[in-house]
Amino acid sequence: MTANDRWSSKEMILQYRARQKRRQAIAYAFMYLAAAFAVATMLAIIGFIFTKGISEISWEFLTSDVHDAGREGGILPIIINTLYLVGLGLLFAAPLSVLAAIYMTEYSKQGILIKIIRYFTSNLAGIPSIIFGLFGFMFFAKILGWSWSLLSGSATIAIVILPTLIRTSEEAILTVPAGYKEGSLALGATKWQTMVKVVIPTASPGIINGIILGMGRIVGETAALVFTLGSGTDIASSLMSSARSLSLHLFILANEGISTSKAYATATVLIVIVLILNLIAGWFGKRINRYKDAR
C-alpha cells in the first residue's frame, strides 16, 4: 500500500474531530439546560411554599391542637395521626409484601401464573389512588363497617403501597447472589432457613429502601384517604377514630378555603418530612450498591 492509497489525511481527520467536538459541546449545553430547568422547577416550588409557610411555623404551631377546623392553632394531632397512619399502613403492607415477594421469587414455579401476578402488581402500581380510595370506601368503610377511621384509611393505604413494596422486595431478593443460597443449602439448611438467615438479611437494605419509599407515599397520599380516613382533628384514640393526615389536612384547608397561611405552613412541614424520608432512602440505596461492589 503506497501513501497515495491512504483514505485518511491528517487534515481531514482534524476537521472531522473539530466538527464532532462542536456537536458534543452543543449536546452538553442542552443537557445542562435540561438539568438546570428540572432543578430550578423543584427549587422554585419548594422555595415558594417555604417562603409562604415558614412565617406561620413556630414551636407552638407544631405542638398545639387544631382549633376552629384549622383556622387557628397548630397541627400536632395531624402530625401524630400521620405517624399512626404510616405505622399501621406499613404494619399491614410490609410483612405481606415481603412474604409475597419470597413466594414469587423462590417458591412458585416460574410459569404463566407468576407472569400474570407480576403483570397485575406492576399495573396496580400505576392505577390512580382515587380508585383505591373508592374501593376502600366501599369495602372497608361500608361493607366491613369500619366507617371513616384510622383502620379504614391505613388498610386502604396499605393496598396502595403494596404493589410497589412487592416489586422492590422482589428486586432486592433477586439481587442476592445465587452463590449465597447454594452455599447455605449445601450446608444442609432448609429452603426456609436459607431464606430467613441468608437471603432476607442480604436483601434487607433493598427491602428497607422500598419500605421508606412506601412511607413517603403514605405521607404524600391524599386521594385514597379522602373517603376512608375521615377528617377528625383530634389525636386518634382508637383504630376506629376518624383522623386526618398532613396531606389530607392540607387538602381540606385549601379546598374549603379555611386558611391559606395554615395550608402553606402544613405544606412546608409535609415537604420537610418527605425530603427527610428521601434522604434516608438514598442512604439505604447507597448501602445496596456497596454490597453489589463487594461481589
Binding site: P177, G179, Y180, E182, G183, S184, A186, L187, V198, P201, T202, Y291, A294
Partner: peptide, 11 residues
Amino acid sequence: GMVFQKPNPFE
C-alpha cells in the same frame, strides 16, 4: 459438604 467455584461467604 460442598465448596464452590466462586468463594461465597455470607455477608
